[in-house]
Nucleic acid binder design. Structure first.
Length: 593
RNA sequence: UGCCCGAUGGUGUAAUGGUAGCACAAACGACUCUGACUCGUUUUGUCUAGGUUCGAGUCCUAGUCGGGCAGCCA
């Protein structure tokens, strides 16, 4: 099965309040097409919280025969970099592969909307292009700088924007507080001609950073602070990673976003609820310009907050910078690159973020829900293999040293027509330390002195003797193999309580196996005074494991279940001749209590 | 404390004035050459107080609790 085919691809379409709104608009034909957008700022890596937004935006597009634009919201030259546009593009495409690829829209490479020429009536819609063409690239807000500048001039001409000379500190003071109205800037009533002149000189680079801004003229007494003459443009003498060095004034989010949506023909602009107060400004700008309808509209939903994890870029950055984790793609991180490296299928991420639903209520989603879908996806597709993480040697005293009894092992019992492979049973084998107890606890089904257990796919063995070294540590177990309990032999159906995994000690391969556990010890690390205090010291354990020989040929995209242990995938650190596996997730273990 | 938003089992979510359902989690049981998977059973819920209505989780009022907003960040 392809790594990216998924049960979720055929799951019934979800329903939520945003999709209900879209359905209404479709029914009344409000928009020619349904077009959404996913607008990350390229200043960090994508994480599972973004995955919720991606699946919502692409989901709406795919359910309505529409498209979704990948747009880099890159209006702040100080924080953005191509490194991030590359990782974001890769991660996004991995996430939607096989599910909504056909909805992903890019634009013709190098396409820029023309600057506004006539009275704010120009329709500068940029049509989408296929993301697979070399002639295509994602959308960039920074490609609209010229058009945005044209709209700003238009706003000035309409008396709806002015150049303000207040310092940043004064601007803050004049804004007032949520419970106190602000005061009007002394520069609020400049003439259109003067504003036009000053804005042109801002653009020409005559003033230093912070000297002047362009502001919308709305209402300094509004109870919504975002309507108190919000800033539209600031001066930043800095080159832009995508736009180059042609600008020294840059638009702010609120100004750029609604117009970028408009320019791309977005119908539904979906963001998270901290932007609810901004919605009035979003609408004000589009209406102040009297742009042709139908206008895009903003809708908000609550972000994903999974338990035991930390999502914000700032916090993840701290984990990376302090060396708590190894990098942005550390398999313990909730970044898409980390989850991918850990071996988690994109389909599991999609199923999880779609399954939690879309509401305006900020809730904490139990990470167990995610773990469940990961296991469910992997259970269906992972090939079963035998592997021993913490080996104890077992000598089957009644087997001659050079014999190798081939045992038929099932590759995946979940398949309709399961295939098999052969694993050799030899005189010396390894079993896992957990599967032997000298002093067994109650209801212990595994091996104990004098006890019997089945070696999976092979035969029942009985433990005759425990050999220890001078320090008292177990050196090896000496057991008798009951060869008549092998498949096809007379006592094959003999029952014992326990069946354990094993590998031949003489025909196995060595591997480094990295066992990951949750990164934090508390459900809401973000609520702690300092999340560094609740980092799980045992989030990574590295063991020297023994694997069945067939695993020597493992490929990066393969997914395995090491029987009775969990799901594993090759790490990118693996080299020819050096196996490194990550434990994606353990099997559910109701005995561990 | 100004404005806005929200509240359904342990967790998430559904019910669009008409039987409070689903998933995860938990517990128990069946099955088992994976203590997995699968299957079965069970526990647990409409924030509070009023009101409208034949009927309210849903509508209204008030309260309580929680969240968001005062970057020249997005």
């Amino acid at each position: 099965m392809s790594a990216e085919t998924s049960p979720s691809a055929s799951a019934p379409a979800p329903s939520d309040f945003i999709r209900d709104i879209v359905a209404r608009h479709v029914a009344e034909q409000r928009y020619p097409r349904i077009v959404t957008r996913f607008p990350p700022e390229p200043n960090g890596y994508l994480h599972i919280g973004h995955a919720k937004s991606i699946c919502l935006n692409f989901g709406i597009a795919r359910e309505n025969g529409g498209t979704c634009n990948l747009r880099f919201d890159d209006t702040n030259p100080l924080k953005e970099d191509v490194e991030y546009v590359e990782s974001i593009t890769t991660d996004l495409r991995w996430l939607i592969a096989g599910w909504a690829d056909h909805c992903l829209a890019f634009k013709p490479r190098g396409a820029h909307p023309a600057p506004l020429v006539s009275q704010g009536k120009a329709d500068l819609y940029i049509g989408p292009a296929s993301p697979d063409s070399p002639e295509s690239e994602p959308f960039y807000a920074s490609d609209y700088f010229a058009a945005l500048h044209g709209y700003a001039v238009e706003l000035i001409k309409r008396g709806k924007a002015y150049v303000c000379d207040l310092t940043p500190k004064e601007t803050e003071e004049y804004r007032g507080a949520p419970d106190k109205p602000g005061r009007e800037s002394p520069w609020r009533h400049r003439s259109v001609a003067e504003n036009l002149d000053l804005f042109a000189r801002m653009n020409a680079g005559e003033f230093p950073d912070g000297a002047r801004t362009l502001r919308a003229k709305i209402d300094m007494a509004s109870p919504n602070v975002w309507l108190r003459d919000p800033l539209l443009y600031r001066i930043r003498h800095a080159p832009h990673y995508h736009a180059g060095d042609q600008w020294c004034i840059y638009p702010l989010y609120d100004y750029a976003h609604c117009l970028s949506d408009y320019l791309e023909g977005i119908s539904h602009s979906v963001c998270s609820i901290e932007f609810v107060p901004h919605r009035a400004l979003y609408d004000w700008i589009l209406e102040a310009l009297e742009l042709p309808r139908p206008l895009p509209r903003q809708y908000e939903f609550a972000k994903l907050v999974p338990s035991y994890t930390l999502l914000s870029k700032r916090n993840i950055l701290r984990l990376v910078q302090t060396g708590t984790v190894a990098g942005w793609d550390d398999p313990r991180l909730p970044t898409l690159s980390g989850l991918r490296r850990r071996g988690i299928p994109a389909s599991a991420i999609r199923r999880f973020v779609i399954g939690v639903g879309v509401t305006t209520y900020i809730s904490v989603t139990d990470i167990a829900v995610f773990e469940h879908v990961i296991r469910d996806e992997l259970n269906a597709r992972a090939a079963r293999r035998l592997a021993v993480l913490r080996p104890i040697k077992v000598v089957l005293t009644n087997l001659p040293p050079d014999t190798a009894l081939e045992c038929e092992a099932v590759n995946n019992p979940q398949d309709e027509q399961p295939t098999t492979r052969r694993v050799p049973l030899t005189r010396e084998v390894y079993i896992d330390a957990d599967d032997f107890a000298e002093v067994p606890p109650p209801k212990y089904f595994r091996l104990k002195p004098g006890g019997e257990v089945r070696l999976k796919y092979a035969c029942i063995i009985k433990c005759d003797q425990v050999i220890k070294d001078a320090a008292g540590a177990i050196q090896e177990l000496r057991c008798t193999a009951q060869l008549d309990t092998r498949a096809g032999e007379p006592n094959a159906s003999k029952k014992v309580k326990g069946t354990i995994h094993w590998v031949s000690a003489t025909r196995c391969v060595d591997a480094e196996v990295r066992l990951y556990d949750r990164l934090f010890t508390v459900p809401e690390p973000g609520a702690e005074p300092d999340f560094m205090q609740v980092v799980n010291p045992k989030s990574l354990e590295v063991v020297a494991a023994k694997l069945e020989a067939s695993l020597a040929g493992a490929q990066a995209e393969d997914r395995f279940q090491f029987e009775r242990l969990g799901y594993f995938a090759l790490d990118r650190d693996a080299q020819p001749g050096r196996l490194v596996f990550n434990r994606t997730i353990s099997l559910k273990d109701t005995w561990a209590k």
